[in-house]
Amino acid sequence: MNSFPIIRVVSKLIIPYILLFGLYVQFHGDFGPGGGFQAGVILASALILYGLVFGLPAVQEVAPPRVIEKLIALGVLIYAGTGIATTLIGRTHDGGQVPANFLDYEALNHDVLHGFLPHGQHLGIFLVEFGVGITVTAVMTMIFYCFAGRSRLFNEKASA
């Protein structure tokens, strides 16, 4: 496919916008349709497009499989970590500290930079969506790597 210059140029033009759109979907999930999963799919599709057009080695240079593999794990850890964090922090209630359940974002209430940084439920939702986004992006990319790694087409291209 990389023998078609038009496709290369067009995709180079498109990919940044896809990435931008992915980020928009990621962080705008609170307001409109979208969220971590959809964003992850979109971001991954940008990488996949890059891979399809410029070849597996090229995209693996941008996003090395080792890193992607760790990112898969990282996303889940962020999500579950948020949950653990809420249990560790506990929630403030009537001035005292009471236990907060797993994933109870109310524990994430804080007064630092009030009105600027999200807090409470918003912060929780932001964090977990972020975790989902990372994992989904990484998993989708990894699946692409795996399939492409098995393909003779790609392997020959790599050697050529």
Binding site: R91, T92, P99, Q121
Partner: peptide, 22 residues
């Protein structure tokens, strides 16, 4: 009130009284 949503009305005996009122 710092917490504005339905709290963890956990059935564990220890918390029951607190949560009930809340």
């Amino acid at each position: 009130a710092p917490s504005g949503h339905t709290p963890a009305a956990n059935a564990t005996a220890a918390n029951e009284t607190v949560d009930h009122g809340h």
